[in-house]
């Protein structure tokens, strides 16, 4: 397993709990959950369906609030930030890659990447978007709409969009879940390559143990707690 490049903590969950209250019941998803993610680290979160992986991801990304505990990003508490600050954070520091790609169908590949840059108020959004599409091997397909691209190509556009804003933290939720094995492999290669080049912190949610093993660290979410998991080979 490769060690993190720095020892600086980028993201930290402190005694985090999340529960949902139904009519007369409290359903606790996790309690006293602690996690530290170092800058540049690649972390896989694995677990059974329904264990709460996606909920944990939305908490870590500041998309949802924990019922108790605190989440710090670069030392700043997400709970204490207002909506505008959190939006700015997502625009400049956090990116997502989804299982279902989520490209806007009415925009071309270039415009999909460009949109993320424009939200950041980037001055040379077109050039940047073009460059990133080139990096993921879609330099010739910039004018194509999502419907004209294969699943693998759509996910590459999504990867370009995610990296184009130069985030410090990237969340990938089952990025190969909708792809065949071979395309999935290619996408993962590209994801890890770019992650290495950009020195981005990557938090990956997956069922795929092979994919999880490629990360520097792997934690398993089980019964509301995180357990470190060690793979024999990366």
């Amino acid at each position: 397993m490769t060690l993190p490049t720095t020892e600086k903590i980028l993201l930290e969950a402190q005694n985090v709990a999340k529960w949902f209250t139904t009519q007369d019941q409290r359903l606790e998803l996790f309690h006293d959950l602690n996690l530290k993610v170092l800058e540049g680290e690649t972390l896989a979160i694995v677990g059974r369906s329904g264990a709460g992986k996606s909920t944990l991801l939305s908490l870590l990304a500041g998309l949802d609030q924990p019922s108790a505990g605190n989440i710090l990003l670069a030392g700043r508490s997400l709970a204490e930030m207002d909506d505008a600050t959190r939006a700015e954070l997502r625009a400049k520091q956090i990116s997502f890659i989804f299982q279902s790609f989520h490209l806007l169908p009415e925009l071309t590949a270039l415009d999909n990447v460009r949109l993320a840059l424009e939200i950041q108020d980037c001055k040379d959004a077109i050039a940047q978007a073009d460059r990133w599409l080139g990096k993921v091997g879609l330099g010739q397909r910039t004018d194509h709409f999502p419907a004209q691209l294969s699943g693998g190509e759509q996910q590459r556009v999504a990867i370009a969009r995610a990296f184009a804003t130069r985030p410090s933290l990237l969340f990938a939720d089952e990025p190969t879940g909708n792809l065949d094995e071979e395309t999935g492999h290619q996408i993962i290669e590209q994801l890890f390559d770019l992650n290495k080049q950009e020195n981005t912190t990557l938090i990956l949610i997956t069922h795929d143990s092979e994919l999880a093993a490629r990360c520097q660290r792997c934690v398993s979410l089980h019964a509301g707690q995180l357990h470190e998991k060690v793979y024999e080979s990366a």
């Binding site: 998309l63 939006a87 997502r90 625009a91 993320a116 939200i119 969009r161």
Partner: peptide
């Protein structure tokens, strides 16, 4: 759906 995506990309709900 479009709004949800824009918000995860950094736009605010108000925007």
């Amino acid at each position: 759906y479009e709004s949800a995506l824009l918000q995860t990309l950094g736009a605010t709900a108000q925007q």
